[in-house]
Structures are given as C-alpha cells and as structure tokens.
Nucleic acid binder design. Sequence first.
DNA 1: CCTGGACTGCATCTTTCGATGTACCGCGAG
DNA 2: CTCGCGGTACATCGAAAGATGCAGTCCAGG
Lengths: 213, 213
Amino acid sequence: MIRVLVAEDQSAVRAGLVLILRSAPDIEVVGEAGDGEQAVALARELRPDLVLMDVQMPRLDGVSATRQVVGEGLADVLVLTTFDLDEYVFGALRAGAAGFLLKNTDAKDLIASVRTVARGEGIVAPAVTRRLIAEFAAKPARRATADPAVLDSLTRREREVLSCVGEGLSNADIAARLDMAEATVKTHVSRLLGKLELRSRVQAAVLAQELGL
Amino acid sequence: MIRVLVAEDQSAVRAGLVLILRSAPDIEVVGEAGDGEQAVALARELRPDLVLMDVQMPRLDGVSATRQVVGEGLADVLVLTTFDLDEYVFGALRAGAAGFLLKNTDAKDLIASVRTVARGEGIVAPAVTRRLIAEFAAKPARRATADPAVLDSLTRREREVLSCVGEGLSNADIAARLDMAEATVKTHVSRLLGKLELRSRVQAAVLAQELGL
DNA sequence: CCTGGACTGCATCTTTCGATGTACCGCGAG
DNA sequence: CTCGCGGTACATCGAAAGATGCAGTCCAGG
C-alpha cells in the first residue's frame, strides 16, 4: 500500500486528486494539507511514502516545502502544477522532487506516476522533458580534468583552503575565515598547487569551480 | 502518420521493434539500419519524423549517430538501450536525443513514447529519470552574477584578456598569446576588474568560468 | 620510549599582480 | 581644423601571491 499525502490549497482540486488516488486499490491517502507549512508538518507526523505537492500554495510554496520534505528525508515528492514555467520545473527538481507533472495529466497517468515514484523511480511530464533535457545538455559535461579523485591527495586543511580560493578570496580573507596567519594560508595554497600540478591560485579556483567547490 | 526509421544491429531485435511499431495504425516504419553510418545515411535520404536508435552498434555508435542526425536537423531521435549506464544516458541526451528508453519497455509504452516524441515532447524511462534529475540538480544554477550582459561593458580586448584569465594564464602568458607587453595586460585586467566590480583576477576567472569563457 | 612520517603552522624572500599616471591613435562633433 | 573621447598601449611602484626552510603536534610501529 502506497501512503500518500496530498498538498494542494484549492479544496476542489484537492478533492479531485484524492478521489482519483482513492480509486486505486494500492494507494491510500493518509492526509491532506492546504498549504506548504501544513504539508511539511503532516509529512513529519504521518511519514507518508509520497507527497503529491502543488507548487502554488500560501504560507510556504510547494518548491520550498519540497526542499524541506526531501531534505529531512521524510518522503518522496511528486510535484504537480498548472503552469509548466521553467522556474517551477527546474526549481522543483533542484529542490529534490522525484517527479514533475502538469495538472492536465489524466487520472490513469497520475496513478501510474504515483506508483512509479513509489518504486523509487522518477517521472517528468513529456511536455517539460524536452526542456529538462535541453537544460541538462546545455551544462558543460564534467571534464576529465575535474576528477574528484585528485582531491584525495589533499589534506582537510588544504581542501578548506582550496574551497576558499574557489570563492575568489585573498590569502588575507582566508586567514581571517579559517583563523590562521596569512603565511600559513600561503603554505597551504603552495602545497595544494604542487599536489594538483597547478601554477597559480587562479587555476586552483577554476578547478574548484569545476568540482563544485 | 509518423514515419519512423529503426536503427538496431541485432536483426532479431530489430524485427521485433518493427513488428511492434507496425501494430500501431498511425506509425509507419520507413526504413531499417544495421549500423550507425547507415542510420545517418538513411535519415538523410528518407527524412523520417523519428529515428529509433540503439546505442550499441557497429561502425558508428548510436550516440554519435544521434549527434549527427540531430545536428543536421534530420529527425528527432529516440534512443533505446539494454543497459542504463550513465555514460549512455547522459551521452545520448547531450547528443540531442529527445528520449531515452530501456529495452525492457513493453510494446504499449514504446508506441506511446514514439507518439510523444513525434509530438515534439520528450520521454525518459522512469528508471533513469531519477538519475537525470539528480545530475541536473547537481549542476549549479546559473547565478545572477553570471549575467552575460555584464560583458557588454567590456571592450573587445578586455574580453579577450578575461577569457585568458579564465584559463588560469598569468599576465606574462597572456602577453605572449595576445602579443602585447605584460604591462598592457595588467592595464586590461585592472580595467575589467573595475568594470565588473571584482577584487582580483581569481574572481574574474570564476566569473569567466560561469559564463563559459 | 622514540622515531619517523603526515599534518599544520609560521617567517623570510622573490616573483607576480594590480593601481596609477601617462601617451598615442582614430574618429566624430563642433 | 582641433578638440574631446574611447580604446589601446607602456612604465613605475606598493601590495599580493608563491617558494622555501623550519618548528610543533599527533600518531603508528618498532
């Protein structure tokens, strides 16, 4: 039995969703929320397998609520919205949603999608999949030079310093943040440059960028 | 009528796919290819609406063939494979595929997917959608600071220098590459730092990275 | 115990960077 | 014409970054 929490502010729409979900024998609607905060609270309390989350909601929007629910590991989230704005789609997916559907999805597909997400898989409405792919392809591929393995040769302190360098901080800035003498920062920079076979902090910064700091 | 080209090296599998597609009244299989090169050639000749492309193929692999077909704007490509390796998935999507399915997809879903892609939408097998979302979310969102518009305030020479800085080059390196005195490079660096409100070449390098050089 | 290695820390010295002042060229407005 | 302006170019000088040598700490093995 898949335990679902429905979060949607418009009660009529919410009732429709619940009706659809109840028609599936293997799905149980364990709770309903009328805003984002309530959704997060109920997710904490009820521990559903999945939250069906609307994007536009009062008090706490669906994207933020998704971030919290997923961040706390409470449940998978399937986001639902009327408008397939890039802002919603990408925001929801970055927030950790396992799926993204439009409200014009028919009952059969909605139920199938809930089952898919409950299986630990993902589902994205075809209408937005193209844009997701395009957005994905637009991002530069992780280069061979950006192999996270090279970080293994660095010590904890060196990694911390590298991270700061990646933010564009000066040695003095780093010294202040990590509470050490500027001279010490220079030592670490010098060492990590050597280990990574780089010739300046600029290259280190670029590398840090590619590695996502 | 959706005109489809099937590219798959194993003839038994290909026959199966063709059989499935022919069972749909609105789908017409206009050609079959046994390797990647043939797939590209037939796509040029037949101009199908969609190419159903296997990844593993002799002579030219499916990903490369996809890149060519999409690059020339010949048709949409729906990639099909047995193994959902990240390398295949991400490679195919970067190559411009409109969809990615696994071979365990049943006949009904395959036909539905073909129709979806033919409508100009996208489709990704649920089993890989999660990883696609995760990979997507892992990439840093385009920051507000990485607004290409800021480049407008720079002169041609300054942009060239910025690009070099982004590669991690020293002033001396840049002077050599752009054939000017090191002192001049410093001038340009100094100016662009001012215009972009940055405090060091390191930040400039990071910015250049975000802008894709 | 003590010894060697890995990590962290600081001080000194050279190189590089960046700010600043100045100069030349091309071009359009007055 | 000539004046002003934007782009490009170079030299000088104080401030940073980077290389190098060395000391203290912690820990694993002998």
